[in-house]
């Protein structure tokens, strides 16, 4: 579910980065009372545990040759409480971005919201509502499956909404949404089953951990759990309905019309005044477009051959010039390295 930079527009990326920073700041502020300095190591190692847990794969039924693994966000939220869980998983998402390059730097805000903050709080809230007093195996399984389902599907919905609001989707919004939700429904059930199994194992082997986890939640009571679920439903529902109402007219192809289809219903566009102004500026001052759109149907000759040729040479100049520059940088670095000796020695400090 890691989003890449390319799935977002800059305003959405900056907005979600701000929202994630504010959310994390709030969570850290709230967690100050729960996480004392003697628990720092525990929190960090729990984050690292997620990496190890994700390695444990298992064969999936009905799909020979495929295997699944758990993600761990909901498990940590259930055991450590939503605040500590959210911090641990946010740290995991940041490390995945900075060290493993899984997810873009600009998309970090979205990824923290979709994969850490939302699943932790939503997953925890739903689990507490459905698992009740955790007296029976069935309660634990029901709680964890519903919690994982809701948490993962909510994250998947947010991914679709964020990409659609960014206006980068050429895939119709509902196709993308249904694909994401469909895939995450399956993943959610599997995640829920394995989370429930791990919780049962822990209850059997080390019941003190589960008991400590239940007490360690930072006063996240049942009313708060209900409120979280309602708020999340309203926000996600409102996002989808807003998109649904704005899809037919608000979004259109960002760069072209379809002369061959006058009734063509557009999908992606950005109608903000800033974008219109920039497009206006570009159209006034740009000498030639990067490529020329055919004015006729397929098979006809394009009308403006001279313009095309000019644009072609500019593209050619851009690519070949860049290649030449890179070649020069490469040769320069080689020459410098030869003169200065090898630079691979570790730093002294």
């Amino acid at each position: 579910m890691h989003m890449a930079n390319e799935l977002l527009s800059v305003p959405v990326a900056v907005g979600t980065l701000g929202a994630a920073a504010a959310g994390l700041g709030f969570v850290c502020h709230k967690a100050k009372n729960i996480i004392t300095s003697d628990k720092f190591a525990l929190m960090g190692i729990m984050g690292a545990f997620v990496f190890a847990a994700q390695m444990v794969n298992f064969q999936l039924p009905l799909m020979p040759g495929t295997s699944g693994h758990m993600v761990g966000a909901v498990l940590l939220a259930i055991i450590l409480g939503p605040y500590a869980g959210a911090i641990a998983i946010s740290a995991v998402v940041i490390i995945q971005c900075l060290i493993f390059q899984d997810g873009g730097l600009l998309a970090l805000g979205c990824n923290i919201i979709n994969m850490a903050l939302l699943p932790s709080f939503l997953g925890y809230g739903v689990y507490r509502v459905f698992a009740g007093a955790e007296l029976f195996r069935g309660q634990i399984y029901t709680g964890s499956i519903v919690a994982c389902l809701v948490a993962l599907v909510a994250g998947a919905v947010l991914v679709s909404v964020e990409s659609a609001v960014s206006g980068v989707l050429s895939v119709p919004f509902y196709t993308f949404l249904f694909t994401m939700v469909g895939v995450h429904l399956i993943i959610g059930v599997i995640e829920g089953v394995i989370t429930g199994a791990v919780l049962l194992y822990l209850r059997q082997v080390r019941p003190d951990i589960i008991a400590a986890g239940t007490a360690n939640t930072g006063r996240f009571s049942k009313p708060v759990a209900y409120m979280t679920i309602i708020a999340a439903t309203v926000v996600i529902g409102a996002g989808i309905s807003h998109l649904a109402s704005s899809l037919p007219d608000g979004l259109e192809w960002s760069y072209a019309e379809r002369p061959d289809e006058p009734d063509f219903e557009s999908i992606v566009s950005n109608q903000s005044p800033a974008v219109t102004a920039v497009e206006d500026f570009q159209s006034r001052y740009s000498v030639l477009p990067d490529y020329t759109i055919r004015s006729g149907a397929f098979g006809q000759k394009a009308t403006d051959g001279a313009a095309e040729a000019g644009a072609g040479w500019q593209s050619f100049a851009a690519v070949s010039g860049s290649a030449a520059t890179m070649g020069l940088i490469w040769l320069g670095a080689l020459a410098l390295r030869k003169r200065n000796g090898v630079q691979n020695a570790p730093r002294a400090d």
Partner: peptide, 23 residues
Amino acid sequence: PHLFVVQLGFLYRYIFMLIDRGY
């Protein structure tokens, strides 16, 4: 936040150790 920086530090310190354990 300080709490979060310390968390990242610990996490990074122990990832590789636990990945090895996983293997």
